[in-house]
Design a protein around this nucleic acid. Structure first.
Length: 492
RNA sequence: GGGCCGUUAGCUCAGUUGGCAGAGCAUCGGACUUUUAAUCCGAGGGUCGCAGGUUCGAUUCCUGCACGGCCCA
């Protein structure tokens, strides 16, 4: 709404008149509340007849001449306020009637129940704690426009009750994971977000610059390489929950910054990480659903362990019919993928690993509704994972899928510094061939490995994706408070 | 990157086969001392996303652009 609108100007005038009268609503620094609206609603039997005070946003007014009902909204609910001219007096009652929807108000008085049973405060005193100059979205339909919901999330939270429930669930899910890990003797750590060399995932980074050191820095795409340095340092069990940044497209499953949980445990392998994944996700689910079953986009999902396991090559064979027997013959794989239905032009000049990932994305992933570990990814697309002892072309790696969504990545960590260097060199070659997501060589990390890293299992979980699945949201933006959108000028 | 769809009052949405722009809520004025999507009477509020084109006339048709949504890649 433009500031020239009648409504804005009318409210601005009210504010100025209040200031003239020495009642600047923005002059208050605090307000003493005795109860929240929820406490009043839940404990009415004990509190009836007591003097109470509340504060919140005025979201509805129903005037009846010499008395007025209003609804005040605070963090966890609403409470009705009843103002009467014979209680407040003529002057204060008129002031009360001048309040606008959206104003932040403190009110106090005796708690009573109306004849319809509504818990209500008889308004004996009230104070305007902040003036709302702009009107709120309509109360009945809420705020529907997805663009406005994301751009002005505060209005979404005010107008749509269920939104705050999603973010409360998100908070509980993260707390559940953190509690589980700390109770199992994992050390929570924080590693650099600004990194001179990025790594730990196949992604393009955001680049920035440090002025004093006059050096290029990258926003991390993963904390992995630092957490493994801590394993080398003897920490044995570490985890980090933090934001990572990937300079790629935005869609229903991707936001340029998202929250990752990474866990590393010395003397374990990827099978131990499967068990840890089952336990962690079960704990998260318990805190939201009170059990291990829930619905995601119409599908009943059961997280009871053990989850199904399926080697990637077998899964591709089962769901696409493509039989990848020779993991070195890219041409055969490309021809088979095209026959299976992948677009030929997308696969030309692409390495085998890319073709395998596309086959999985297209044919396998949509079928993985019940929790499933896809295992044994090729070495070429797993530069930080340990080779399988029985097949050096494959790695001891898995990705967990739930509800058709990829929610993580884990493996037995590669701890052979000589092999790691070769893998980095293969990545450098891929980069030279045009793969912008290939890992840069991290000499410092290889040097760390040369001091000896115990065999270690590592796990990364995408928190946003998990929250999306566990709260039955169809879109990642529904579980990120402020998703990235293009800025827009005020023309609209 | 491609396809489809959307953008009309503060919000939620109608609508115009091209001819003065509509509703509900919100707002303003009036009535009303137990309402709760309060009710009743009356009123105001619009660059119809932006820019071009076609036309006597465009919010409507065409083109481009912006932002967003869904699907595909």
């Amino acid at each position: 709404m433009p500031e020239t609108s009648d409504e804005y100007q009318r409210r601005l005038k009210k504010l100025q008149e209040l200031k003239h009268k020495g009642q600047d609503p923005f002059g208050y620094h605090s307000y003493q509340r005795t109860h929240s609206s929820r406490q009043l609603q839940e404990n009415f039997a004990e509190l009836e007849g007591q003097a109470v005070s509340v504060a919140g946003r005025l979201i509805a007014m129903r005037g009846h001449g010499k008395s007025t009902f209003a609804d005040l909204q605070d963090a966890n609910g609403t409470i009705q306020i009843h103002a009467r001219v014979d209680v407040l007096g003529e002057e204060r009652y008129e002031d009360y009637c001048e309040l606008d929807l959206g104003d932040i108000v403190g009110a106090s008085g005796e708690l009573f129940g109306t004849r319809t049973g509504e818990v209500t405060i008889r308004c004996e005193e009230f104070v305007l704690l902040a003036k709302a100059l702009r009107p709120l979205p309509e109360k009945f339909h809420g705020l529907q426009d997805p663009e406005l919901r994301y751009r002005q999330r505060y209005l979404d939270l005010l107008a749509n009750d269920e939104i705050s429930q999603i973010f409360a669930a998100r908070s509980r899910i993260i707390k559940a994971a953190r509690d589980y890990l700390t109770e199992h003797d994992f050390l929570e750590v924080e590693t650099p977000v600004l990194q001179p060399i990025y790594g730990g995932a196949a992604a393009r980074p955001f680049t920035t610059h440090h002025n004093a050191l006059d050096m290029q820095l990258y926003m991390r795409i993963a904390p992995e390489l630092y957490l493994k340095r801590l394993i080398i340092g003897g920490c044995e069990r570490v985890f980090e929950i933090g934001r990572v940044f990937r300079n790629e497209g935005i869609d229903t499953r991707h936001n340029p910054e998202f929250t990752i949980l990474e866990v590393y445990q010395a003397y374990t392998d990827y099978e131990d990480m499967m068990a840890l994944t089952e336990n962690l996700v079960a704990t998260m689910c318990q805190t939201v659903h009170g059990g291990l079953t829930f619905t995601y986009q119409g599908n009943e999902i059961d997280l009871s362990p053990p989850w199904q396991r399926m080697p990637l090559i077998e899964a591709i064979n089962e769901y696409s019919g493509v039989e990848l027997t020779n993991l070195e013959d890219t041409e055969v794989a490309r021809r088979q993928a095209i026959e299976a239905g992948l677009e030929a032009e997308r696969l030309s000049d692409q390495p085998l690993g890319y073709i395998i990932e596309k086959l999985c994305d297209r044919f396998v992933q949509p079928n993985l509704i019940q929790p499933t570990f896809i295992t044994d990814y090729p070495v070429s697309i797993s530069p930080l994972a340990k080779r399988k002892s029985d097949n050096p072309q494959l790695t001891a790696r898995f990705e967990p899928f739930i509800g058709g969504e990829e929610v993580g990545n884990a493996f037995s960590e590669l701890n052979d510094p000589l092999d790691q260097r070769q893998r980095f060199e293969a990545q450098a070659a891929a980069r030279a061939a045009g793969d912008e997501e290939a890992h840069p060589l991290d000499d410092d990390f290889v040097q760390a490995l040369e001091y000896g890293m115990p065999p270690t299992g590592g796990l990364g979980l995408g928190i946003d994706r998990l929250v999306m699945v566990l709260t039955d949201q169809p879109n990642l933006r529904e579980v990120i408070l402020f998703p990235l959108l293009r800025p827009v000028d005020d023309q609209r």
